[in-house]
Design a protein around this nucleic acid. Structure first.
Length: 507
RNA sequence: GGCCCCGUAGCUCAGCGGAUAGAGCGGCGGACUUCGAAUCCGCGUGCGGAGGUUCGACUCCUCCCGGGGCCA
C-alpha cells in the first residue's frame, strides 16, 4: 500500500516494462530517488541481459512527466530521479489525507477480537504482562488503522487452583497468619486482607486501573468459570473419548501433537480442565460474530498454537480465523543479577512500579520497539537512569518542535506547491513520509508493531535535518515548508499513537 | 528426548531475496546574536560456523556450535 502518487509511477513503469514494477528507496542517494530491480527479474524470463532491458526501460521512463532522469547502474538496476512537481503532488496527497494518511490498507474490513494480557487476578500486573499488553494493543491499533473493527478482551480465570491459593492467602492474612507456602506473599495481599469480601473483584479493579494508566482499554471481560459451565452445549460437537475415567479430546486427529484431557477423572475431582474452557471460549468468540480471533500469548504457550487450530477444526471452523501471536518473555535485571519475576515470592516488579520509574511513554516504547521474537532484558536501574536518552524523547521532541513552529506561524498559509528546485533535505523528508502507508501496512500484516518506532526515529531524523538546514518561516518557500511540517507532524503523531505514546505540543 | 525463540558494531537492537549491512546508547572532535541545541555534522573493515539453492543470501534449506524457554 503506497501513496497514490507512487503507485501511479509504479504503474506507468509497469506499463513500459510489461511487468509489475516495485519501487524502493536506495540506501545510497547516488542511486536516485527510487530504484527498481525489474530488469534483473525479467532477464531470465526474456533471456536477455538485464542491463539491456534496463537501458530500454530507462529510455522510455525519461519520457514520463514525473521522471527527471533515469539511469542504469550495477548489474541492471533502474535508478530514477523525480521532478519537483512530483514531490509537490506527493506532499499534496499527504495533506489532503490529513490524519487519515496511511489508513485503510485492509482489503476487506473484518471484525477482529484481540484477546490480551489475561493475567490471573492473583496479583498486580507485572512487566511480563505489560509486554503482552503493549504488543497486543499496538497490533490492535494497527488493525484499526488498516480499517478493521477491533475489540479488546481480557480473559481471566476466577475459579482455578491459583485463584484458590490467592483467596486462601488473603484469608490467612485476615486471621493474622502467614499465607501458605504455595500461596501469595506480596504486600498487596495484606492490603486486600484489610478490605472486606472476596479479593478477586478488587484485584481485577486494580488491574484494570493499571492497564488504563498504561493506555490500554478493554471493551470486554471474559470469565473462565462462566465458560466452563457451558461445556455441555459444546461437548456434542467435539470428537472425544473416555480413557482412565477422564474425557479426552481427540485433538491429535486435527493437527495437535497429542490428545488432551478436558474433563478429569472422578478420582482427580471430575472437574473440567482449562482446556475445556478454551474450547467453549473459542467457539463462543467465533459465534459472537468475530471474523478473526487473535490470542496474544507468551512464548511459553507456543504449544497452544496447534491446540487452538485443532479445536477450531474439530468444531468445524476455519482455523484461519484463529491466530495466536507469540512474544518472547521479559526478564528483569537489577544491575548484573537477574531478578526473576516471581509473583509468589513477592519480589515482583509491577507495571505500576515500572511506570513510576520510567513513565508510560518510555515503558510502552521500550516494550514494543523490539520484535516479538526477541527476548527483552530490562535493567530496571539502567532504564530509570537513561530516561532522558530514550529515543522516545527524540521522536516526541520533533513533534513538539513542529508544534512550536506552528505557534509562531500563526495563521500563515500551508501549501504543497514547490516554489522551485527542492533541496535534498526536503526531498528526503517527503520520500520518508511517503513510506508510511507501506510501513504501516507491512507492520499490520506481519503483526510487527516494532517497525513503527524504528520508522518514527527515521522521520524525526529527516525532520531535524531538514529543520537544521532550512528556515521554515521565511521567503517564497514558507507555505511549502509549512506543508512539509504539517505532514511530518501528522506522521509522527500517528506513529506515536500506534504504540500508545503521547505526542506532546511542548516538552 | 521432542518442540519454540535467539546469535548482526563495545552495549541494546533494525534488516523477511538486491547495489558499499543500518539506528540508538557509550566514546572522540566540531556547530547556536536568527523559527525549540531534548538538535545537527564528522569519526566504525561487525552478520556464530560449514555446506546448499540463486544472476544475487544477514534474509530461504540442511547440519553443527552457543544462549534462552516450553513440554515430556
Amino acid at each position: 500500500m503506497s501513496p497514490k502518487t507512487l503507485d501511479r509511477l509504479s504503474q506507468a513503469l509497469g506499463g513500459l516494462a510489461g511487468a509489475a514494477v516495485e519501487l524502493e528507496r536506495p540506501s545510497d542517494p547516488a542511486h536516485g530517488d527510487y530504484a527498481s530491480n525489474v530488469a534483473l527479474r525479467l532477464a531470465p524470463l526474456r533471456k536477455q541481459p538485464p542491463r539491456e532491458i534496463a537501458e530500454e526501460l530507462a529510455h522510455a521512463a525519461e519520457k514520463l512527466p514525473e521522471v527527471e532522469r533515469a539511469e542504469v547502474a550495477g548489474p541492471g538496476f533502474l535508478n530514477l530521479w523525480l521532478t519537483s512537481a512530483w514531490f509537490g503532488e506527493a506532499l499534496a496527497e499527504m495533506l489532503a489525507a490529513g490524519t487519515e494518511y496511511g489508513s485503510g490498507s485492509a482489503e476487506r474490513r473484518e471484525r477482529i477480537q484481540v484477546e490480551m494480557v489475561s493475567a490471573n487476578p492473583t496479583g498486580p500486573i507485572t512487566v511480563a504482562h505489560a509486554r503482552n499488553g503493549a504488543y497486543g494493543d499496538s497490533v490492535a491499533r494497527l488493525l484499526e488503522l488498516a480499517g478493521h473493527d477491533v475489540e479488546r478482551e481480557y480473559y481471566y480465570n476466577d475459579a482455578g487452583l491459583q485463584v484458590e491459593r490467592f483467596r486462601e492467602s488473603v484469608e490467612a492474612r485476615r486471621r493474622g497468619e502467614e499465607p501458605p507456602e504455595e500461596g501469595y506473599h506480596g504486600d498487596y495481599v495484606k492490603d486486600l486482607a484489610a478490605q472486606q469480601g472476596d479479593p478477586v473483584a478488587p484485584m481485577l479493579q486494580q488491574i484494570e486501573t493499571t492497564l488504563e494508566r498504561f493506555r490500554i482499554h478493554f471493551d470486554t471481560w471474559a470469565l473462565q468459570s462462566e465458560l466452563e459451565q457451558r461445556l455441555g452445549e459444546f461437548l456434542p460437537r467435539l470428537d472425544t473419548y473416555e480413557k482412565d475415567g477422564a474425557v479426552w479430546a481427540r485433538s491429535s486427529a486435527y493437527g495437535d501433537d497429542d490428545d488432551r484431557v478436558i474433563i478429569r477423572s472422578p478420582e482427580q475431582g471430575g472437574r473440567p480442565t482449562y482446556r475445556a474452557a478454551d474450547i467453549v471460549y473459542l467457539a463462543e468468540k467465533l459465534d459472537r460474530g468475530y471474523d478473526r480471533a487473535i490470542y496474544v500469548l507468551g512464548s511459553d504457550h507456543h504449544g497452544t498454537r496447534k491446540w487452538y487450530a485443532a479445536i477450531a477444526r474439530m468444531l468445524g471452523y476455519d482455523p484461519e480465523r484463529v491466530e495466536v501471536l507469540l512474544y518472547q518473555l521479559v526478564h528483569l535485571v537489577r544491575g548484573s543479577q537477574l531478578a526473576r519475576i516471581s509473583k509468589r515470592r513477592g519480589d515482583i516488579v509491577t507495571l505500576d512500579e515500572l511506570i513510576d520509574e520510567i513513565g508510560v511513554d518510555a515503558a510502552r516504547w521500550y516494550l514494543v520497539s523490539r520484535g516479538p521474537d526477541q527476548t527483552i532484558d530490562i535493567d530496571v536501574e539502567l532504564a530509570a537512569e537513561k530516561t532522558a536518552k530514550n529515543p522516545v524523547y527524540y521522536v516526541q521532541y520533533s513533534h513538539a518542535r513542529i508544534a512550536g513552529i506552528f505557534r509562531n506561524a500563526g495563521d500563515a498559509e500551508v501549501g504543497s506547491g514547490p516554489p522551485g528546485e527542492l533541496a535534498d533535505e526536503e526531498k528526503d523528508l517527503i520520500k520518508r513520509l511517503a513510506e508510511f502507508p507501506g510501513i504501516a501496512a507491512e507492520a499490520t500484516e506481519r503483526r510487527g508493531p516494532h517497525a513503527i518506532p524504528n520508522y518514527a526515529i527515521r522521520v524525526a531524523d529527516d525532520f531535524h535535518r531538514f529543520y537544521t538546514e532550512h528556515r521554515v518561516l521565511d521567503g517564497d518557500s514558507q507555505a511549502f515548508r509549512l506543508g512539509l511540517c504539517r505532514a511530518s507532524q501528522a506522521v509522527v503523531a500517528r506513529c506515536l499513537d500506534l504504540i500508545g505514546v503521547e505526542a506532546p505540543e511542548r516538552m
